[in-house]
């Protein structure tokens, strides 16, 4: 009896030792979770999730403080990828949030008074201009966060949906008649 206990304990210790050694020896250096989440977020920096930007939202998700369905620009696909990363079930976009087509802000340059408020609001420095000078938006850099729209005192900024062109056109999902469920 004692022998058996000793043998089992010995085996247990030996195997535990091997596992412990392997855990250190073969440790995979991985990006911290926050970086991985941040890499999935679209970096719009729009704050619709209620956090000050994508990174803070990523940190909140990593800490378990925020849900994964608060990012409208990331859309369904983003939620799916977050769910996959975190090993949870995907869910629909949070209440009151809606996914919009990708847009960029456009300044009506005739109306702009050069107040710089939008420049201060832009999270990615995509607006060029100076005080009392006309401002303009760099469409390639604009993330479509809409943060510049509200501060404008003369309402000269509006959002324009980005149109498909030959560079961004995509082949559609092929029509497949098999699953014609009534």
């Amino acid at each position: 009896m004692l022998n058996a206990i000793l043998v089992m304990a010995g085996i247990g210790l030996a195997l535990g030792g091997i596992l412990g050694w392997a855990a250190i020896r073969f440790r995979v250096q991985e990006d911290p979770l926050v970086d991985k989440i941040d890499a999935i977020l679209p970096q719009t920096q729009c704050g619709q999730c209620g956090y000050a930007g994508c990174r803070p939202y990523a940190e909140a998700i990593a800490k378990g403080e925020a849900d994964i369905n608060l990012c409208p620009p990331g859309g369904e696909d983003g939620i799916k990828r977050l769910a996959e990363l975190l090993g949870v079930d995907p869910k629909p976009l949070g209440e009151g949030l809606e996914s919009k087509p990708k847009s960029v802000a456009v300044i009506d340059e005739d109306a702009c008074i050069g107040c710089t408020l939008c420049i201060q609001a832009c999270p990615v420095d995509a607006i060029v201009g100076a005080a009392k000078q006309m401002h303009t938006i760099l469409p390639d850099q604009c993330t479509g966060c809409e943060l510049c729209v509200a501060p404008c005192p003369v309402d000269c900024i509006h959002m324009e949906v980005v149109k498909e062109d030959l560079n961004t056109w995509k082949w559609r999902y092929p029509i497949f008649h098999m699953k014609k469920v009534p």
Partner: peptide, 10 residues
């Protein structure tokens, strides 16, 4: 690429 750029600029 756009996200990386936006992240860097932010």
């Amino acid at each position: 690429q756009a996200a990386d750029q936006a992240r860097a600029r932010h």
